[in-house]
Design a protein around this nucleic acid. Sequence first.
DNA 1: TCAGTGACTGACC
DNA 2: GGGTCAGCCACTG
Length: 115
Amino acid sequence: MKPENKNFFQKVYEVSRQIPFGRVTSYGAIAKYLGAARSARMVGWAMNGAGAIEGVPAHRVVNRKGLLTGKHHFDGTNLMQQLLENEGLKIRDNQIVDFEKHYWDPAKELTLDNF
DNA sequence: TCAGTGACTGACC
DNA sequence: GGGTCAGCCACTG
């Protein structure tokens, strides 16, 4: 099974599922990893449906500034923040504190061999 | 069918 | 150094 055989959305879910506990990544990082760096919006759109899929931690995916731009898509107003705080992350003003330290780059720490 | 919108990003002025 | 613009493509009315 090669990644080319999977839909873009499906690949986004596969990558998201492998985000380590307490780590976060960005939409662009996933998009770039999938070979569609300019389609970060599609990653965000994919996350819109990721909430309905078990095992896909959409709350660990934020924009490249570490800003929780998608928090309103969660049930609770601050559910996304609570989930991140539950993983040891600190949120301040809808933004992840020390985002760089918790940043997880799939292109560096993940290989397509896993697919 | 067409146009508008969106959980983004990089380039340009 | 900040604000603006274009590209990306699926979904909706």
